[in-house]
């Protein structure tokens, strides 16, 4: 694998000093980037340069850098997590870009995700949705043996498909309505598939949807964009299940 070096690229980045400040785009030059480097490593290098020039480095969220914590969240060249399928921003590599290209980087845009600084957004709204009902109400201790309730292979797999959500918010970012339906559906559907979660299924679906609405996310119009940009490929079939759960709950009220 010969390492190809991008001699020069340009990045056009959203800069905004804090929640209240007005933002603007700025374009920077970055030199000598290995195509084997990750996108965030490219930003590290740019930041190193900015710091040395006495400028404020670009703030962006990241932590695990292996696609599982859901912290990284960049809208790159018009797509959530950039131009590749089934990955997070931290898994995006520079081999997806060309010499001399201008790469546009924006934060997740949604009223429910205000910008904290530059490319960093506040996703507390997701926390609130989870707190509204994204759990099974059991205390520690006093639970039955793990094998007491058999769960079919298919059900367990489907629950796991949904549970794979990393809470990154790409679905909201990419949705033309800034809807959080895929995120909510992932949790509701996971627990609806398991006997443990079914018990309070109705309450959960209603509470999480109500919270989502309250926090200013848009509604779902089933464009399916979220599913294609979701780094974990969470299927919108789970949204259908959420709708089912929700309608069932509402009609039996």
């Amino acid at each position: 694998m010969a390492d190809v070096i991008l001699k020069k690229i340009y990045v056009k980045v959203w800069r905004q000093n804090n929640v209240r400040a007005k933002g603007r785009f700025e374009t920077y030059e970055v030199e000598n980037i290995s195509q084997g480097s990750s996108f965030l490593e490219m930003l590290d290098i740019l930041n190193d340069k900015l710091i040395r020039e006495g400028k404020d480095p670009i703030a962006f969220d990241h932590d695990c850098r292996e696609g599982i914590c859901g912290t990284c969240s960049l809208y790159v060249n018009g797509r959530a997590h950039g131009p590749d399928r089934d990955i997070t921003t931290c898994q995006l590599h520079m081999r997806k870009f060309n010499e001399g290209e201008t790469i546009t980087i924006e934060p997740w845009r949604a009223g429910a995700f205000p910008v904290i600084k530059d490319l960093m957004v506040d996703r507390t709204a997701f926390e609130k949705i989870q707190q509204a009902g994204g759990f099974v109400s059991v205390n520690t201790g006093g639970v039955p043996d793990g094998n007491a309730i058999p769960i079919g292979y298919e059900d367990a797999e489907e629950a796991m498909d949904a549970a794979a959500c990393i809470g990154c918010g790409a679905c909201v970012a990419t949705c033309k309505n800034s809807s959080a339906m895929l995120f909510v559906a992932a949790k509701v559907s996971q627990l609806a598939k398991l006997p443990q979660g079914k018990v309070e299924g109705k309450r959960r679906a209603k509470a999480m949807v109500a919270k989502m609405d309250e926090l200013g996310f848009g509604g779902c119009t089933n464009t399916g964009a979220c599913e294609l940009e979701c780094p974990k490929g969470i299927s919108i079939s789970h949204i259908a299940r959420l709708n089912r759960e929700y309608l069932k709950a509402k009609f039996s009220d």
Binding site: G78, T174, S178, N222
Partner: peptide
Amino acid sequence: QNMRARPVKYLKSNQAVNSTWAS
């Protein structure tokens, strides 16, 4: 409601790759 959910729009948004025009 849906338009309000995104007060600041994207500069560059490449939605053609992930959804149909009609949708």
